[in-house]
Amino acid sequence: MALLQFKASARNKVIAMIIIIFGTALLVLSMAISIAFGAANIDVGTVWQSIVSFDPARTEHQIIQRLRLPRALAAALVGAALAVSGAIMQGMTRNPLASPSIMGVTAGSTFMIAVALAFASVSSSIGLMAAAFIGAGLGAGLVFGIGSLSKNGLTPVKLALAGSAITALLSSISSAIAIHFDVAKDLSFWYAGGVAGLQWENIITALPVFVIGLLIAVMISGSITVMSLGDEVATGLGQRTGIVRALGFVTVLLLTGAAVSISGTIGFVGLVIPHITRFLVGSDYRLIIPCSAVLGGVLLVLADVGARLINPPFETPVGAVTALIGVPFFLYLARREGRGML
C-alpha cells in the first residue's frame, strides 16, 4: 500500500511522455543546428543529404561526417550521461547538491588521466577511459570516505565542502604532474572541457559504456525511487539497499568516467538537469532518469552551440558555459542551505 502513494501520478506520467517525445525532437533539432552551424555555415538540407547519401567528393559532406556529426553526438551523449549520473547520486544520497562535478568524481577522472599521460604515456582512447573510470572511483571514494568518517554523517554542506577540497587537492597534484612531465598542454584539454575536435573513434570506444550505463540506470530507477525515501523505509519495503547502492555507484562511475574521458570537465549539467526534471515530473526516478537523459543531451548540445557563438571564430570551453548557466541555480540551492527540493 505504501508504495502506491509514491507511484507517479497520471499527470506526471503524461508530462514525462511529453518531455521524452518533444525533448527528443528538440534534441534532434538542436543537433541539426549544431551540425549546420560553424566556421563554414552549411544549410540543413546539405546536412540531411550528407547523412542519407554521403558523397566523399564534397568538402561539406566531409566536414559534416568527420567533424560536426561526432561533435554533436558526443555533446548529446555526454550531456545525457552527466545528467543521469547526477540524478542517481541525488536519489541515492538524498542530497540536493550531489552531482559528479561537485562531489569530486570528475576531478578524480582528470587526475588519473594526468597520471596515465605522464607515467604510462597512455594515448589510446581505451586506456584513457580506463584511467578515467579508476579516477572517478577514487574521487567518489575519497569524498564518501570523508563523509562516513565524519561524526554527523554526510550533510549536503559537508558533501559540497569535501567535494571542493578533494577537487582542489587532486587538481593541484595533476597540475604539478602536468608541469613537471610537460603534459600540461595535453591535460588542458581535459580541464577546459569541450567536445570540439572529437573523432569517431573516441565516440565508438565510449558508446558501449554509455549504452550499458544508461540501461542499468533505467533498470534500477524504480529501486532508486524507493531509496530516495530513506534507508529505513527502503529496508522496510524489502529493498536490498546494498545491491542497489553498489549498482548505482558503478553506473555513476561508468557514465561519468566515459563522459570525462571524451570531453573533460563539464560541470553543473549533473546538478541542474535532475532538479529541473524533478520539478517537472515529480519524485519518481523511473520518470526522472529517462527525462534527465533527454534534457541533459539538449542542454549540452545547445551549450556547445553557445560556446561557439560567444567569441567567434574562437571556441569558448563548453564547461565555462555550463558553469555560467549552473551557478545561478547553485546559488538558489545554496540559499536554501541544501534543504528541500528532494
Binding site: 577546459a192 553543473f268 574562437f314 569558448t316
Partner: peptide, 27 residues
Amino acid sequence: VTPIRLILVGIGINAAFSALIIIFQLK
C-alpha cells in the same frame, strides 16, 4: 547571514568567477 549559507554561496561565486576567467583567458 548564516555561516553555512555564506560558504555555499561562496563556492557558487567561486565557480562563476572561475568560468569567467577561463572565457577571457582563452581570448
